[in-house]
Structure formats: C-alpha cells, structure tokens
Amino acid sequence: MFIGEAKRVSETQRVPLHFQAVSYLELTPELLADQDLVLLTPQVAYQAEIQAKIGDRVPMAVIPNDIYGWLNSQALVKFTCKQLAVHPAVAY
C-alpha cells in the first residue's frame, strides 16, 4: 500500500521514480545492479547482513521513522528526490 501510493504520488508530480518493494532475501547482485538507490525500512536498516549484501554496490538510505511510521508517501517521494538529487516537475 505504501509503495503503491508512493508510485501514484511520483506519477502525479511527474517525478521519474520507480519504487519496488522486495525482501532483503531477494537482494541479489543482479537486482542491485539496476538500482540507483536502496531505501531501507527503519526496522531492518541496522542489520549487518543487509548492509553487507548491499555493500558499495548502490547508495543506501534509511527511510526516516516519521515518514515510515505514518506511511507518508508524499514525504517518501520528497525524501527520495532529495537522496537522488531529482527535482519534481510539480511543486509540493
């Protein structure tokens, strides 16, 4: 639901983002090779196994607690844009 709403917000604001939710078990070198950024949920962000899988392959950021806790998809899009230095076509 959270990712679906974030996709809708990014489309509405004409921001070129593609969100994909996966389990950390699905993180493979092949999947990571196609990513510009990996967003981690707060509850798994500090697990060494996950950080080791991602390593230096792709930039990583932790979704802030206030964004994730409230499932604030608009704030998630804004946060992601800031991490990637992407500017939305529509001001928010």
Rank of each mutant, 00 (worst) to 15 (best):
Q74P: 01
I54N: 01
A21W: 11
S73Y: 00
Q83S: 04
Q20M: 09
T41D: 15
P59G: 08
C81M: 09
L76D: 02
T12A: 15
A48F: 14
L32N: 06
Q43M: 13
N65P: 02
V86C: 00
P42G: 03
A21D: 14
I63C: 02
N72Y: 13
Y46I: 05
L32K: 05
L71D: 10
T12M: 07
N72R: 13
P29W: 12
A45Q: 02
P16M: 10
S10K: 00
Q47A: 12
L71P: 04
P29L: 08
T28F: 05
Y46D: 12
S23L: 07
D34S: 14
I3F: 11
D34W: 06
A91D: 13
E49V: 15
N72I: 02
D66I: 06
Y46T: 00
P64Q: 02
L27D: 00
L17A: 03
A75T: 10
E30I: 09
Q74G: 05
F79Y: 14
P88M: 05
V62R: 04
I63R: 00
Q83E: 15
Q47P: 06
L27W: 04
G4T: 10
A75G: 11
Y68I: 01
V38H: 05
E5P: 03
V9E: 02
K53M: 10
A91L: 15
V90F: 13
F2I: 13
E5V: 08
C81R: 10
Q35Y: 01
W70Y: 09
I3A: 01
H18I: 11
R14S: 15
F19G: 02
I67A: 01
V38N: 03
Q13I: 05
Q35C: 09
V15Y: 07
M60V: 11
V9L: 05
G55Y: 15
S73R: 00
L17E: 04
Q51R: 05
G4H: 14
P16K: 12
A33S: 11
C81G: 14
K7A: 08
R57N: 07
E11L: 08
V77A: 03
V77F: 02
V77E: 01
V62F: 04
L32D: 08
F2N: 06
P16N: 12
A85F: 15
T12C: 07
A21V: 06
N65A: 06
Q47I: 11
K78W: 09
V9W: 02
S10V: 03
